[in-house]
Design a binder for these strands. Structure first.
Length: 849
RNA sequence: GCACGAGUGGCGAAACUGGCAGACGCAGCGGACUUAAAAUCCGCAGGCCCUUCAGCGGGCCGUACGGGUUCGAUUCCCGUCUCGUGCACCA
């Protein structure tokens, strides 16, 4: 009888080793430069989580396990590894919970952080917890405020009355990046446009560098592409149109200056300041009505409008190329927020202008030859300029150049690069965020809080909601509001707070030197650790977080505060984990416990009704959420870790299959039985004290495993690394005896993946110290190399036989061996060999006629 | 609509630069052990077909679909379909 105590029981060994690692502080890395400089560094970072009330879901540990394996491997390979964890803890959900429960968000945040930390520790991650950071800690946001002051002093932060995205449901403004199709991307609440005085950051100043420096980064191509699209660089020209009856001129931006001769009208955005100037008395009523309607339309309604609308202002501009008068219209398909808020319309060669011209009967002129009839559809491709005076006969690229030069000579225009990227709206009407270190002086003007007085701490307020007259919650802190600066000037504090992105823009720098009270980080430590060597997180941050963080980093670089141009050298996105869900025809979802999932389909247990089974995003409403706590309780943390990585390639979206966890758990049990005799609890009787070399076959299997796990882990191909370990364990299980030496080697290989089990078995096998603190085993290239090789023998591309020959066999020797084979002879009988293909170490192919 | 990515057994997947498709695992099947079951261990396993008492042996098809290049294509090229992601009046 095997007793339960002698079986593999993760529930008892995992907490034991987690405590032991904690006490021995094995994962802490020195903060002493002299000590650090003895070894090379590796900085491996996870995107730190927002500690939500729901706790960890199964998606978090996927990326975290990947970085954990890499961090453990690198440590064993002799690197100083920086592998920290922290909390991106400012944000809306805690504030909403605070309003709901009437508890301070700091208390809710602490509760959630404690839960997250507990869950992460249960998984056995090798984080250096002495470096934990929390963006809501005044000792942290003190430096967030300090960085804001750097931006302010460089003229990159300013306050302005701007059209903003106002979200009534959340009672706050949002950044452009947070709004899509007129809705807040997080909640789907509608967003409307309002004019408000807000803080803005001049990220477009860095547009060119943010674009150019992408080239040197080891990032997924699609993430680089998304950033490029977001920055949206367009090259072209600004063209000035003289206005009839006015000394002012109308400036438009175009990427197609070569089509200027085809401009038959101009269009202003409804918000454009020249609308009032240009509108004639006869058109005033119609224009006013149109502009009012457009202003009241939400962004969503404006972007969803199918048909082009607009009104003639009655005014005219002069096309600088043709000298002809063209009418100026106002239409909401032109955006005030891009370019100059006005366009030259070329209906022959722009689809939108074509649609508008058709709708309002405006003339269409062909100025680029190469497409079909421009009266029917716009031709937007490249071609040859026609009807274009000095440009006639030129190709599109040459025509653009010539027109820009001509405009510049005539002083009617200039070459211009335009970016889609706009100033970053950087304030929110919230309580739970970093206060700005800013004072609005009584006499007018803005002053900054001196660095020595930071942090500006969040004051206590009795309610976290906006005030009755719509002011941000900080307006309630009446005592806090009034401030006198050291030089005697008085004023009121800024009551907006920073958006959640602020804290995550620089946390990777704080991890370098988290306890420093004199500076945000030590300069020498920064030089040692930066850049981040591997950054893993979800693709949802491809634009927002990663663009904002790069922007701040470049500002800090210009301030001489960091030594690298870019913060994250290598980026990797893990794929989302989905799960099976079950629902009936009416769309009602069923939890796994209510479903009988058989080979012939899924059925509701209660009613027997047939259910559809699909793979979807995990969500409470679909009853398909998998909790890491439950998986650990049922299978152990090592099995969770292993399955997270064994499911498939890290970058891939893939469904969670509960049965798969049992599979990797079985693998871990087999490893256990290699070492432990389950009958007695003593060491397995098959173990020997002989050296590795006593069993050449298993020794070879071990060395191959070391090599493959090493290469695959470094390349983030964890799934194939794990299958190699499984193959080794299968080999070892069927061997009559196994050398302890071989097993100790294997446990070192296993330990980054299943650290608890490896630690327990290492100790039982008499290993010294912690297995996670051992050096990574080296493999012997001679052992990994095969001494014989199996060639596939094809005749006319069809497999006919296999021959085994010495590794060094020459082409002639392999051919002779192949021809000696019965089946090959049969296939070749009576045929002429026209050609013989030889692929070293793989196959040969007889091409017969 | 535009851009990018992906389609391989019942399922998750593997296959380095064109070279034995399906490693490893899940589910399944057979055997051993057991009074029995679970667990474990050993074995089978892409599909269709022929041959055979059975074993053995053999043939054809097969990496979304249709073509092409090549001695040879999951891999390269052209076209089609499906799914996913991003962008979407950005002049």
């Amino acid at each position: 009888m095997s007793t339960p105590e002698n079986k593999y029981t993760p529930a008892s060994i995992e907490p034991k080793w987690q405590d032991a690692w904690d006490k021995a502080r094995v994962y802490e890395v020195s903060n002493e430069l002299a000590e650090l400089k003895k070894k090379p560094k590796f900085y491996v970072l996870d995107m730190f989580p927002y500690p939500s009330g729901a706790g960890l879901h199964i998606g978090h540990p996927e990326g975290y396990t990947a970085t954990d394996v890499v961090s453990r491997l690198k440590r064993m390979q002799g690197f100083n590894v920086l592998h920290p964890m922290g909390w991106d803890a400012f944000g809306l959900p805690a504030e909403r919970a605070a309003v709901r429960e009437g508890i301070h968000p700091a208390i809710i945040t602490k509760r959630n952080v404690d839960n997250f930390r507990r869950q992460l520790k249960r998984i056995g991650f090798a984080y250096d917890w002495s470096r934990e950071v929390d963006t809501t800690d005044p000792g942290y946001y003190r430096w967030t405020q300090w960085i804001f002051l750097q931006l302010y002093e460089r003229g990159l932060a300013y306050m302005a009355e701007v059209p903003v995205n106002w979200c009534p449901a959340q009672a706050t403004v949002l950044a452009n990046e947070e709004v899509k199709d007129g809705k807040y991307v997080e909640t789907g609440d509608p967003v409307e446009r309002r004019m408000m005085k807000q803080w803005m950051l001049k990220i477009p100043v860095y547009a060119e560098r943010l674009l150019a420096d992408l080239d040197g980064l080891d990032w997924p191509d699609h993430v680089k592409e998304m950033q490029r699209n977001w920055i949206g660089k367009s090259e072209g020209a600004e063209v000035s149109f003289a206005l009839e009856g006015s000394t002012q001129s109308l400036v438009v931006f175009t990427t197609r200056p070569d089509t200027l001769f085809g401009c038959t009208y101009c269009v202003l955005a409804p918000e454009h300041p020249l609308v009032a100037t240009l509108t004639t008395p006869a058109q005033k009523a119609a224009v006013d009505a149109y502009v009012t309607t457009a202003k009241n339309k939400s962004d969503l309604a404006r972007s969803e409008a199918k048909e082009k609308t607009g009104v003639f202002t009655g005014g005219f501009a002069v096309n600088p190329a043709t000298g002809k008068k063209v009418p100026v219209w106002v239409a909401d398909y032109v955006l005030i927020t891009y370019g100059t808020g006005a366009i030259m319309a070329v209906p022959g060669h722009d689809e939108r202008d074509h649609e508008f011209a058709k709708a309002f009967g405006l003339p269409i002129v062909e100025v680029v030859k190469g497409g079909d009839d421009v009266q029917q559809a716009a031709f937007v491709g490249e071609g040859t300029a026609v009807n274009s005076g000095l440009l006639d006969g030129l190709g599109t690229a040459a025509a653009k150049e010539k027109m820009i030069r001509w405009l510049e000579e005539q002083q009617r225009g200039v070459r211009r690069v335009q970016y889609r990227l706009r100033d970053w709206l950087f304030s929110r009407q919230r309580y739970w965020g970093e206060p700005f270190p800013i004072v609005h002086l009584d006499g007018g003007g803005i002053a900054t809080i001196p660095v020595s007085q930071l942090p500006v701490q969040l004051p206590h307020v009795d309610e976290f909601k906006p005030t009755a007259d719509g002011q941000p919650p900080l307006q309630r802190a009446t005592d806090w509001l009034m401030v006198e600066l050291p030089d005697g000037r008085k004023g009121v504090r800024e009551v907006n707070t920073m958006p959640q992105w602020a804290g995550s823009c620089w946390y990777y720098l704080r991890f370098i030197d988290p306890k420093n009270t004199q500076a945000a980080w030590g300069a020498e430590l920064e030089k040692y650790w930066m850049p981040v060597d591997l950054y893993v997180g979800g693709v949802e941050h491809a634009v927002l977080h990663l663009l904002y963080a790069r922007f701040w980093h470049k500002v800090l670089f210009d301030c001489g505060l960091v030594s690298t141009k870019e913060p994250f050298q290598k980026l990797f996105n893990q794929g989302m984990i989905l799960a099976y869900s079950f629902k009936n025809d009416a769309g009602k979802y069923f939890g796994p416990a209510e479903v009988d999932d058989r080979d012939d389909g899924a059925f509701a247990k209660a009613t027997g009704e047939k259910l559809s089974k699909q793979i979807e995003k995990m969500s409470k409403s679909r009853f398909n959420v998998v909790s890491p706590d439950d998986v650990i309780a049922a299978h152990g943390a090592d099995a969770l870790r292993l399955y997270e990585l064994f499911m498939g390639p890290l970058e891939q979206v893939k469904p969670w299959q509960t049965a798969g966890v049992a599979g990797v758990q079985r693998f871990l049990e087999r490893v256990w039985r290699l070492v432990v005799d389950e009958e007695t609890g003593a060491l397995s009787k098959r173990l020997t004290d002989e050296p590795e070399s006593a069993d050449p076959a298993l020794q070879k299997a071990l060395h191959k495993t070391i090599q493959k796990v090493q290469d695959d882990s470094a390349g983030l191909r964890f799934n194939t690394a794990i299958s190699q370990m499984m193959t080794f364990v299968n080999d070892a299980t069927s061997a009559k005896t196994v050398s302890k030496d071989v097993l100790r080697g294997f446990l070192r290989v296993l330990s980054p993946y299943a650290p608890h089990l490896a630690e327990e078995l290492w100790q039982r096998l008499g290993g010294q110290g912690f297995v996670c603190a051992q050096s990574w085993p080296s493999f012997d290239p001679k052992l990994v190399a095969e001494d014989s090789v199996t060639y596939a023998v094809q005749v006319l591309g069809k497999l006919r036989a296999e021959v085994v020959v010495p590794i060094a066999a020459t082409e002639a020797e392999v051919r002779a061996a192949a021809e000696a084979n019965d089946k090959v002879q049969a296939a070749l009988a009576g045929k002429q060999v026209k050609k013989f293909i030889f692929v070293p170490k793989r196959l040969v192919n007889f091409v017969v006629g």
